[in-house]
Amino acid sequence: MATLICGSLAFDTIMSFEGRFAQQILPEQLHILNVSFLVPSLRRDFGGCAGNIAYAMRQLGGTPLPMAAVGNDGAGYLRRFEELGISTEFVRRIDDSYTAQAMIMTDRDNNQITAFHPGAMMQAHCNRVAARDDIRLGIVAPDGRDAMLEHAEQFHAAGIPFVFDPGQGLPMFDGAELARFVELASWVAVNDYEGRMLCDRMGVELAELSRRVRGLIVTLGGDGCEIWEQGERRHVPAVPAAQVVDPTGCGDAWRGALLHGLEQGWDLARCAALGNRLGALKIAQRGPQNYSVDAGVLALA
């Protein structure tokens, strides 16, 4: 069984600021903000939500099918997928654009400031979701606005259950649009901040939101996650990381584990426990796609 992963492919430029953002920004001077951060370390990684989730699923032995768009600089990304055994049949190349680019700066407390250029991602809606015998599951992850709206409707029309993961794309949608996503989706996955924003825009509480889907997952970073089913909350504790190096891509690794578990027919608590383990593995490595999963991780699932 394969999982269709609708979302972005991007190059991540990751910078480390050795101080704290809070010590460099004066709240009373935000109207004339002008700051500069010295970043002694810089690296460029393969990223984007679809790429990161596909990487996680492949590490777990799954069959991810990323549906995304790359630009005229995306040949290296496609080669990487091929080397990893990830299909590129649903990756569209846009020759007059760059691949999406994320510039991510992390301070010593793992706070992040990100600048994002969407590039080819804005043409992702040209890809179409259609029913296929081997595709039984999907996810709508952060992508171009039109792509997210259209792919959710297409998943529903094709009878493919999917996870709605608004992520950084959540501010693009109003309450009615978000309610439609939830109506179409089988599961919703958000972090705690996104969960509060989603509920605020829809005018509901988490318990009510969970009654509209099969399951609602709220990740809590180092505190693990909450799973909500039919108004009932359950906490799944975090897995301690060997070391905290880089949080970039942790949420996507978690979602890859979620999809892997859903593919296997697991309950949400078991999916969440694997997600917490994968997040702990990822945060101990720099970049979103540089960790590896050994048999011991799956043996504990």
Results as ranks from 00 to 15, higher is better:
10 A>H: 12
69 A>T: 14
182 V>L: 10
69 A>V: 09
101 Q>I: 13
81 F>K: 03
124 A>C: 11
256 G>P: 04
127 N>K: 06
15 M>Y: 14
32 I>V: 15
83 E>Q: 15
23 Q>W: 02
10 A>L: 08
104 I>R: 06
186 S>P: 00
53 I>T: 14
72 N>K: 14
233 R>P: 02
53 I>G: 06
178 L>G: 03
288 P>F: 06
11 F>P: 01
29 Q>W: 00
134 D>V: 06
198 L>R: 00
52 N>Y: 02
108 R>L: 13
26 L>E: 14
61 G>V: 05
92 R>Y: 04
83 E>C: 08
79 R>D: 15
112 Q>T: 11
108 R>K: 10
114 T>D: 04
12 D>S: 02
17 F>M: 10
136 R>H: 10
102 A>S: 15
69 A>S: 15
203 G>W: 09
50 A>K: 00
239 V>I: 13
155 F>T: 06
97 S>K: 15
282 K>F: 01
137 L>N: 06
40 P>F: 09
39 V>D: 05
3 T>R: 01
245 V>W: 00
213 V>D: 01
289 Q>H: 01
152 A>N: 01
67 M>G: 06
184 L>R: 12
179 A>N: 09
246 D>K: 07
194 E>Y: 09
264 Q>I: 02
219 T>F: 08
180 R>V: 08
59 Q>I: 00
242 A>L: 12
258 L>S: 03
58 R>V: 02
58 R>S: 11
153 E>N: 03
56 A>G: 15
269 A>L: 07
286 R>W: 01
99 T>V: 10
253 A>K: 02
131 A>F: 13
45 D>T: 01
1 M>G: 10
279 G>E: 00
224 G>V: 10
207 A>K: 11
37 F>P: 03
289 Q>F: 00
10 A>V: 09
225 C>W: 02
176 A>K: 13
156 H>E: 12
158 A>Y: 03
264 Q>V: 02
217 I>W: 12
255 R>Y: 07
286 R>G: 12
198 L>I: 05
92 R>W: 03
91 V>G: 00
136 R>P: 00
180 R>G: 07
52 N>V: 06
271 C>S: 13
280 A>M: 06
46 F>K: 10
287 G>C: 00
68 A>C: 06
219 T>N: 02
297 V>Y: 11
191 N>S: 03
157 A>P: 01
205 E>M: 08
148 M>G: 08
217 I>L: 15
64 P>V: 03
151 H>W: 04
297 V>W: 08
246 D>P: 08
53 I>K: 04
145 R>Q: 11
265 G>F: 09
224 G>N: 05
70 V>M: 03
284 A>E: 07
263 E>N: 14
130 A>D: 02
31 H>W: 05
58 R>F: 05
10 A>Q: 14
80 R>C: 05
104 I>F: 10
36 S>L: 07
59 Q>H: 10
203 G>I: 06
75 A>W: 07
178 L>M: 12
135 I>K: 03
141 A>T: 01
267 D>L: 02
234 R>D: 08
92 R>S: 09
199 C>N: 02
82 E>Q: 15
242 A>Y: 02
278 L>T: 04
275 G>M: 06
23 Q>C: 07
196 R>T: 08
282 K>M: 13
